[in-house]
Design a protein around this nucleic acid. Sequence first.
DNA 1: GTCTATAAATGGATAGAC
DNA 2: GTCTATCCATTTATAGAC
Lengths: 213, 213
Amino acid sequence: MAGKVKTRDRILQTSLALFNQEGEAQVSTVDIAAVMGISPGNLYYHFRGKEVIIEALFDDFEEEMRQVLSAPIKRPLDIEDNWIFVYILFEEINDFRFFYYGLASVLERCPNLRPRFARLLKLKQDTVDAILTALEKGGLITFGPGEQDALATRLAAHLTFWLQYRDLTAPAQSSRTIINDGVYSTMIQIAPYIAGDRAPYAALLTEYFKKQR
Amino acid sequence: MAGKVKTRDRILQTSLALFNQEGEAQVSTVDIAAVMGISPGNLYYHFRGKEVIIEALFDDFEEEMRQVLSAPIKRPLDIEDNWIFVYILFEEINDFRFFYYGLASVLERCPNLRPRFARLLKLKQDTVDAILTALEKGGLITFGPGEQDALATRLAAHLTFWLQYRDLTAPAQSSRTIINDGVYSTMIQIAPYIAGDRAPYAALLTEYFKKQR
DNA sequence: GTCTATAAATGGATAGAC
DNA sequence: GTCTATCCATTTATAGAC
């Protein structure tokens, strides 16, 4: 009993790893079974097909993302809190990056995931917007008309696709480095809206950036 | 003779359209031939496989992108010039969006495209950087240390993935609208670095934004 | 729960007639 | 250049034994 991982869970783990490595479209159910050392028939006993596996993985992803996005930040004005928040967000996306990397393929195979995926992005954007509101209320930043909304949208998009961009332009780096890079490039986008002198904020970020390496 | 499009070109056109619509991984050579109303054998006479088609499409894409990116902007300080430049860039990306949408799949099938794709992104980033330099030299914007580099990277990433993000969060819009939206959200990111009052710049952009709809 | 064997479907690719 | 016919490989999916 102790330590024994159920086959069902092993299938999900293996599928996720393979999908992230090679892309969902390149991995067949036979591949998954072969890597695990089980028979295709056994795999089909647990999941009736690849769609079902993908949907189960999305369930996991959605649950974790909702958990992360709904966890309120204790001290919104504290840089460290926001740093950690963005870091965790990137880690979550990185863990399920095959969804983003082969989106067309995934949504074609599982059309019912499209609205769910869209809702998740919307939730991300709303969360970012709420944090910006808190920062403005706290007097740390100030916005002109329409600027907050534009920044929230932009940051959500940045959070969504940065890892992919980085992976393309500077491959062969550890995911640790890429994520850290992503957090910095996210947080630094707030700098221009700092009320008053933005240099100290930038300096603080650079400090964190170095520490995390 | 006149008006007759060669089969080879029709294959490329049809493939591009199908890839953009359904994703490269979901479209087989048989599908392409069927849609065109020709036989699979005929298709194979012109292209020895799907890889060859994809690579031919990338050749087109690369050539057009290089052309766009190397065309010097006449008046870098003029908003209209930059607006048009970004617009054309987005249009180009939109025309070949299957490369971005199903990147994992494409690069898995044609590994030799990876470095070429990466070089193209790099060129994009360098071009953006050059424009920013011109703007700063012209006295329109000012940067703190490291800010220009960060902005150039960010803008390049934004240019690369914005359409995809928009398509997910607000689907069923005309590509015209999505692109226009993208141009605005790109240009507005420069606003915080405007030397002096940034309100006039933002107002001008909003003006263009409305005009283009 | 797990295996073997196999069916059914699809996609990639080629030979040879027209 | 184009078609028909066909073959091979891969993938999905199921039946039945252990």
